[in-house]
Simulated assay, not measured.
Amino acid sequence: MGNNHKDYNEEHENGGMASRGVTRPMAEKEVTGHSHDHGDDKGGMDRMKMLYMHHKQTLWIYWMLIILGAWLVISPFTFDYGKDIVQPSGGRSLWISDSMRVLVMKWSDIISGLLLMFFGWRSLTPNRPVSLWIACFIGIWLNLAPVIFWAPNAYIYNNDTIVGVMVIALTILIPGMPNMITYMKMGSVIPPGWSYNPSSWPQRWIMIVLAFFGWIVSRYLGTFQLGYTDYAWDPFFGESTMKVLNSNMSHSLPISDGAFVGHWPIRSNS
């Protein structure tokens, strides 16, 4: 028992689960204190304590999901989705009529908002990982819907983009993966055969920054193809970017490839 107690202390001194972003410092400190008092790690019981404490510390997140859901529900009734309908760039033909674009985006936001309110309310109770994952996928859908249905104006595009990103951040980024505390293995932060932790933040931030930058570029290219802006600025390829975005291949696709895929166009020498 003494050796187990010593290993447990060393693990937490070296970072343990907290350094991997699985728990927050307050929960980790409190659970560690309980374990020291009893002289042993109670395994599953301590994990559930950590889960409940972590949920208590992040309770504001689930209220934010409910608030964002309410915002989505009232948006179609507050702002006129059918006002100033914009046509896509390059005179491309759409697979959906203007009236349907407005109607579908209205119901997409209303249904998404109601679902967010429901699953946000369910998440107020601890140990509801499925509800959080569903909310996360709603955030992903909010980013895709304006692209798939060619949102008729920039407000809808920007509103769904911002709310969608906030939902994703609130469900899996800020609090960590749902219920990871319950199945994350305790042990060294450095995997066997490695000299460093490949999951540490110094290793993660480069990919995170690059991915976020690529997403920003993708959404910006989408604003041009969907017709919200008349010009797509590119410091590397100049007007060739707009030619690629309005190319025959781009017009043959049913959705905005710039917003959906997100890539820097390669300038042709021809």
Results as ranks from 00 to 15, higher is better:
Asp7Glu: 13
Tyr8Phe: 15
Asn14Lys: 09
Met17Cys: 08
Met17Tyr: 03
Thr23Ala: 11
Met26Lys: 15
Met26Arg: 13
Glu30Met: 12
Gly33Trp: 05
Ser35Asn: 09
His38Trp: 09
Gly44Arg: 05
Asp46Ala: 11
Met48Ser: 08
Met48Ala: 08
Lys49Ser: 10
Leu51Gly: 08
Met64Phe: 14
Leu65His: 10
Ile67Thr: 13
Leu68Phe: 11
Gly69Tyr: 04
Ala70Arg: 02
Pro76Trp: 01
Asp80Asn: 05
Ile85Glu: 06
Ile85Thr: 11
Pro88Lys: 03
Leu94Trp: 02
Ser99Glu: 10
Val102Met: 01
Leu103Thr: 13
Leu103Gly: 10
Ile110His: 04
Leu114Tyr: 04
Leu115Tyr: 01
Leu115Asn: 06
Leu116Gly: 07
Phe118Cys: 11
Ser123Glu: 07
Thr125Gly: 06
Ile134Arg: 06
Phe137Trp: 14
Ala145Val: 09
Pro146Ile: 00
Ala151Lys: 04
Thr161Asn: 09
Thr161Val: 08
Val165Trp: 01
Leu173Lys: 06
Pro178Arg: 03
Asn179Leu: 03
Ile181Trp: 01
Tyr183Met: 09
Gly187Tyr: 00
Pro191Ala: 00
Pro198Asp: 02
Ser200Ile: 00
Pro202Ile: 04
Leu210Phe: 15
Trp215Tyr: 14
Arg219Val: 14
Gly227Gln: 03
Asp230Phe: 00
Ala232Cys: 11
Thr241Tyr: 03
Val244Met: 09
Ala259His: 03
Val261Pro: 06
